[in-house]
């Protein structure tokens, strides 16, 4: 009798181990098997970055600068001892992601804030898809642009999302800046776009 019990216990233990093993195998698989489309991936990334910046704009800049008036936000935030502008916050995030991603070979997407009317020429579109995408989102408000492009032998999925003037400071800073190529932006205008690029072939 005792032997039988031991045997049963052994079978249960083996079965449990096997099923846990299978569970681990499935979980491992989910991390390596593509189960999300590049479009869904790009949309999700954009949702996160856009929401983070919106929260910074509302909860920090609007509240402390506009409502409570206890601090300023300025492009020259160091000299002025001020808050960084939401657009700068976004750009610093993109730069940090690019740097950290260098050490993660399987994390190879990139994103940037670009414009057809950049204050800094470095932020002008470079590829044809970027140019087409920025033009598309500026002319078709409320819509995103998706395309594939081949760069240096790799195929990429590229998504472009409109970036819009949400506060008077966006408009005044761009219209009045000495290096701006466009001086007639209005509130709610598309000023540029977020470009997200994901490799889809090695």
């Amino acid at each position: 009798m005792k032997e039988e019990k031991k045997m049963n216990l052994a079978i249960v233990t083996i079965a449990t181990c096997l099923s846990i093993g299978a569970g681990i195998a499935i979980a491992k698989d989910a991390g390596t098997t593509p189960s999300i489309t590049p479009k869904a991936m790009a949309d999700a990334l954009h949702l996160v970055m856009d929401s983070d910046r919106a929260v910074y704009t509302k909860r920090i800049v609007n509240r402390l600068v506009k409502k409570e008036k206890v601090i300023k936000a300025s492009e020259h935030f160091e000299d002025d001892k001020a808050l960084v502008l939401p657009a700068q916050m976004f750009r610093f995030g993109a730069e940090m992601v690019a740097k950290r991603a260098e050490e993660k070979p399987d994390v190879n997407f990139s994103y940037s804030l670009q414009s057809l009317w950049p204050i800094n020429k470095q932020n002008a579109p470079k590829t044809d898809v970027e140019k087409e995408g920025l033009k598309f989102v500026a002319e078709n408000k409320g819509q995103n642009y998706y395309a594939t492009e081949e760069l240096g032998g790799t195929e990429y999925f590229t998504a472009v999302y409109a970036d819009t003037a949400v506060a008077p400071v966006c408009v005044s800073c761009h219209n009045d800046h000495k290096d701006t190529p466009k001086r007639d932006f209005k509130m709610g205008d598309v000023m540029g776009g977020v470009v997200i690029r994901i490799p889809i072939s090695g």
């Binding site: 509240r63 506009k66 409502k67 506060a167 209005k186 509130m187």
Partner: peptide, 17 residues
């Protein structure tokens, strides 16, 4: 005159114009 929503959303004075 402008207006702030409960989550610090901002309607700028005169819509910024």
């Amino acid at each position: 005159n402008g207006f702030f929503g409960p989550e610090d959303t901002m309607m700028p004075p005169r819509g910024g114009n």
